[in-house]
């Protein structure tokens, strides 16, 4: 029972498709192709000369145990950011959805952090948790806890996860709230009449009906944690202490723009491209099966 709209001839569909295809080609395929090409070379920083090394850059990377460790760091970081930001957003959305009075105010306030750029968010959190002058670190000190994310790896990870998740909660909140409001009230009321408590209703009706939203956010948030958290890491920890917060995309930056090793940097972005591509395929193949549209 699928509806199909058919065009007469090829010209119109081609014209309609062209803008998107051209934009994708110019801003995605071309740079991605360049990265693949560059990953085969070791150039000098100024582009004066360049040596072909084939897969030499990849061999160099995979034999580096710090690079291999960055995979684990990235998995932990992305997992935590996704779980924390989605979990918190879902909780807040459920609460906001039940509000009768003043929900507009809460909604507006909750959306604000999304307007803050990651690098700025990083500086804000760093300021609060600065080991010597930060206000939160100071209160923790009063409670007898010596906060030092500069040296403590777990605290550094916690801080970058918190700073990265914070702005993201707003975004997820918006989608979850919209998703919740789209669930027909009649279904929930029917369950309530049957005697289902709030938690039972949430588990058996609301959450399954929310699954398209949840799946969409899962994909989007993992991509966010992989790529867009760079600013937070750069401002708060610069990948430290002892590479505890060096995620793959931060290493692409550090090797390319601090180390001026463009060959290694290009090879890393190719690897990153493959990893994220593979993850998205896995998500659509296996997770999406459990999604009810």
């Amino acid at each position: 029972m699928e509806k199909r709209v058919t065009f007469k001839g090829w010209m119109l569909p081609l014209c309609l498709l062209a803008p998107q295809v051209i934009i994708t080609a110019v801003f995605f395929f071309y740079p991605a192709g360049q990265a693949v090409w560059q990953s085969m070379f070791i150039p000098d920083p100024f582009g004066l000369k360049s040596q072909f090394v084939g897969f030499g850059n990849f061999e160099f990377l995979l034999s580096d145990r710090y690079y291999r460790a960055a995979f684990a760091t990235t998995a932990i970081f992305s997992g935590l950011v996704t779980v924390v930001s989605m979990g918190l957003a879902l909780y807040l959305a459920v609460l906001a959805d039940r509000l009768i009075k003043g929900s507009g105010v809460y909604r507006t306030l909750l959306i604000w952090p999304y307007a803050v750029a990651p690098a700025v968010a990083g500086v804000l959190w760093l300021f609060m948790f600065n080991t010597r002058v930060g206000v939160v670190a100071w209160y923790l000190g009063l409670l007898g806890y010596d906060w030092n994310h500069v040296l403590n790896e777990a605290e550094a990870m916690g801080l970058v996860v918190a700073a990265s998740s914070w702005g993201r909660v707003s975004y997820n909140f918006l989608f979850f709230l919209a998703g919740l409001q789209a669930i027909p009230k009649s279904v929930i009321e029917a369950a309530a009449i049957d005697g289902a408590r709030f938690w039972t209703r949430f588990r058996t009706i609301v959450f399954p009906l929310l699954s398209p939203t949840t799946f969409f956010l899962l994909v989007v948030n993992i991509v966010y944690a992989f790529f867009e958290t760079f600013g937070v890491i750069h401002t708060i920890t610069s990948g430290g202490p002892q590479q505890a917060t060096t995620i793959l995309v931060y290493k692409v930056f550090a090797d390319g723009f601090v180390g001026q090793d463009l060959g290694s940097s290009a090879a890393q972005s190719v690897i990153l491209l493959i990893v994220v591509g593979a993850m998205t395929i896995i998500q659509f193949k296996f997770v999406e099966r459990r999604v009810h549209y």
Binding site: V150, L151, N152, S238, G239, G240, P241, Q242, Q243, A254, D255, V258, G259
Partner: peptide, 16 residues
């Protein structure tokens, strides 16, 4: 610049 970053990391390991 990057070697200094490595030195920073290793020094931090000593301080901690």
């Amino acid at each position: 610049d990057q070697i200094r970053g490595i030195i920073d990391e290793e020094l931090e390991a000593v301080w901690s």
